[in-house]
Computed example of a mutant assay.
Amino acid sequence: MTRVLFVVSAADRWTLRDGEVHPSGFWGEELAVPHKVFSAAGWEITLATPGGKVPTLDRLSMSRTAGWPWRLREVAAYLESIRDRLDSPGVLAEMDPDDFDVVFYPGGHGPMEDLAVDPVSGAL
């Protein structure tokens, strides 16, 4: 069985170069769709964040400007269906990359706040 590590941002904000701070997190569709596809393929998925912190959904990813309402409802429903997994991620520093066949990073602006500068993430 293929094992995949989802490295998810634990950031709830994105700090710009000028110091301006925007609410942020992981982008809903960029986590939900691959997770659903990989799950349907029978892959075993482990979610991990820096420090094992519960990830924050970027609310903009679920806003009207992010897509068709029917699509956003599908994404929201899928994220709710995996809520227990999102609420209890593993600690990224405790993950052994040799235990996984694939490492996947869902997008959004949140990863720029924490994963882009995290030494464990960088080593992956």
Rank of each mutant, 00 (worst) to 15 (best):
F38H: 09
R83Q: 15
G90P: 01
M112Y: 02
D96E: 10
E20P: 00
G19D: 07
A11H: 03
V4A: 14
M62V: 11
E74R: 14
E44L: 02
D114H: 05
V103P: 00
L124P: 02
G108Q: 01
T49L: 05
S81R: 13
H35W: 14
L72R: 15
T49A: 06
W43H: 06
T46Q: 09
Y78P: 14
L5N: 03
P111C: 06
W70D: 15
S63C: 06
M112C: 07
E94W: 03
S63W: 06
P55G: 11
T56Y: 07
L5D: 03
K36A: 15
G25V: 06
L72D: 07
T65C: 00
M95Q: 15
A10T: 02
F100Q: 02
E20H: 13
L16S: 09
R3D: 09
E80G: 13
P34H: 06
G19R: 13
R71C: 04
A41Y: 02
K36Y: 08
P89H: 05
G90Q: 12
E30S: 14
G67D: 12
R73K: 15
G67Y: 11
V54L: 02
D96L: 01
A40D: 12
A123F: 02
L79S: 09
L16T: 06
D114P: 06
F38P: 05
P50R: 07
L79P: 12
W43R: 00
A11R: 05
V117C: 00
V91D: 13
P89Q: 07
E80H: 15
S9F: 03
L47F: 12
V103Q: 01
L86G: 08
